[in-house]
C-alpha cells in the first residue's frame, strides 16, 4: 500500500505504524467524566467502507496523518497532517 504523505509524497505503508479510528483525536474534556472517557478509550468505529484513520510515519518524519481509506478496497481518498486537521488549518 502507498500512503500519499502531504509533505513527502507517496510512501510505502511499511514505513508507517497504524493506530486506527481518527476519533482518538477527540479526547474528552477532563471534566467530562468517566463515562465520556470510557467511550473514548474503548469504543471504536470499524466500518466496512470509507474510514478516517490515524497512521504514524514512524520510519520517516514522525508525522501523524489522518488517512481517509476505503477499508473494502484499500483505496486511499486523502491524507492530511493530523496537526492541521486538529487545528482546523488548511493543507
Amino acid at each position: 500500500m502507498l500512503i500519499p504523505h502531504p509533505l513527502l509524497g507517496p510512501r510505502d505503508a511499511q514505513e508507517f505504524t497504524y493506530l486506527g479510528d481518527a476519533a482518538l483525536m477527540q479526547r474528552p474534556d477532563p471534566q467530562a467524566g468517566e463515562a465520556a472517557f470510557a467511550d473514548y478509550v474503548f469504543q471504536r468505529d470499524n466500518p466496512a467502507g470509507v474510514h478516517r484513520e490515524l497512521w504514524y510515519h514512524e520510519y520517516g518524519d514522525r508525522s501523524w496523518l489522518v488517512v481517509t481509506r476505503d477499508t473494502t478496497t484499500h483505496e486511499i481518498l486523502g491524507a492530511k497532517l493530523a496537526r492541521n486537521v486538529k487545528m482546523g488549518l488548511p493543507e
Partner: peptide, 18 residues
Amino acid sequence: AGLVLRNMEFARQCLWPE
C-alpha cells in the same frame, strides 16, 4: 523507548497541537 516517543508525538500532534 520507541513507544513513548510515538505516544508523545501523538499527544503533541493529535491532541494538543496548540
